[in-house]
Design a protein around this nucleic acid. Structure first.
Lengths: 203, 203
DNA sequence: CAGAGAATTCAACGAGTGTTGAATTCGAAT
DNA sequence: ATTCGAATTCAACACTCGTTGAATTCTCTG
């Protein structure tokens, strides 16, 4: 008899308010889902449900699943600023600073770095994105943090980056102890000497 | 008129020969597929086709997809022997030896280590398997390669292992240069000092 | 040689996925 | 006020995948 439909059913049609709120809610849910489950296992239906939205709305805003993934991984952080921050500290403490900076890049529940890393394991597009970020960052700004850039600098910086990426994988993806139950600060202190070695090799 | 069916059609029924050949062919194809595409994207249909076999035959031999995955990742190598090999060389060269041993663990097109690593990115079972292998190997035999096991030995060994795992990820999953285009020997030489630091820290 | 059981294929089911088109409602420009 | 377009939902399609049950052929034992 009552003219309104089922109490919990949302009718079709545009909602009052800013549509960008919907967009942001979808992106947040997508980042959480991709970081937790990787590209394949994260489903648009689950992301839409988490964002309180219909799956078709996700398609409307981002075209397809890959478009959503790409939009969710546009890095707001400028890598130049990231590395400059390391180069600003004295040479003897750059190992610790670099370790902390890199580890933070992959920490957090909806970290774009972690999400990209997870996806890269089985998706060539994600792997290419991460590869190009690493190579580009190293070639353009990374050498600034080195003590003597002339000799094998590119290789050393790459090893530095992959060392810390490996720690992030073990910590956040595999959950290897004692890494997973260790705060970033003490972890950075333990890694600092090795990282410092890549920045400023003796001899 | 000819009584035989279509030329390329294989009839149902048991084949002459050793059924273990089929089993081995399936396992080989599975290792290739899992290492190349990860657990989710590797399909039983593709594995069966690669092995020249019907998908139902895969189910008959291994029960389900996870059973196939587990069977394809039963490690033939004894981790104890692996680490003893490192402990056998003089202390000053253990960094190089450890690097080479670890990197080989993930090298190769159908490496079980690489395959497990790829799968671990999105599968909790695979992640647990790899985590337990790393933790167990370190706790039981890894400490033998250390110069002084007493102080932070567990953490140092874990960092060593994750360093080299990170290199493997960058090399084989992401394809980061110059790592991907570098042979294992020169790579091991470049990493050796950092690894040595974890085995025998100065001071 | 007869029969049990294993190996193999075939065809199909059922579940889950990304995606689409139509219908509906709101905001903004004219 | 009207109209156009954007946002949103609903229902459904098409596809792929893992898995299953029946039918067929081989091997092995007694």
């Amino acid at each position: 008899m009552s003219p309104r439909p089922a109490p919990e059913a949302r009718r079709a049609g545009r909602r009052p308010g800013d549509p960008d709120d919907t967009r942001r809610a979808i992106l947040d849910a997508a980042r959480r889902a991709f970081a937790a489950s990787g590209f394949d296992r994260a489903t648009i239906r689950a992301i839409a449900a988490d964002a309180g939205v219909d799956p078709a709305s996700v398609m409307h805003h981002f075209g397809n699943k890959r478009g959503l993934f790409v939009a969710a991984h546009e890095l707001p952080d400028d890598p130049v600023a990231l590395f400059s921050q390391i180069a600003a500290v004295p040479l003897s403490e750059r190992g610790h600073a670099a370790a902390l900076t890199y580890l933070r890049l992959f920490a957090g529940e909806s970290s774009a770095g972690l999400s990209l890393l997870r996806a890269a394991a089985s998706d060539e597009h994600a792997a290419a994105t991460l590869r190009e970020f690493i190579e580009h960052a190293i070639l353009t700004v990374g050498v600034k943090i080195l003590a003597r850039p002339e000799q094998d600098g590119e290789l050393r910086l790459t090893l530095l980056a992959t060392h810390l990426m490996g720690i992030a994988v073990a910590r956040q993806v595999l959950g290897v102890r004692p890494l997973a139950t260790c705060d970033l600060e003490t972890l950075a202190r333990a890694v600092a000497p090795a990282v410092q070695h890549y920045i400023d090799p003796p001899g």
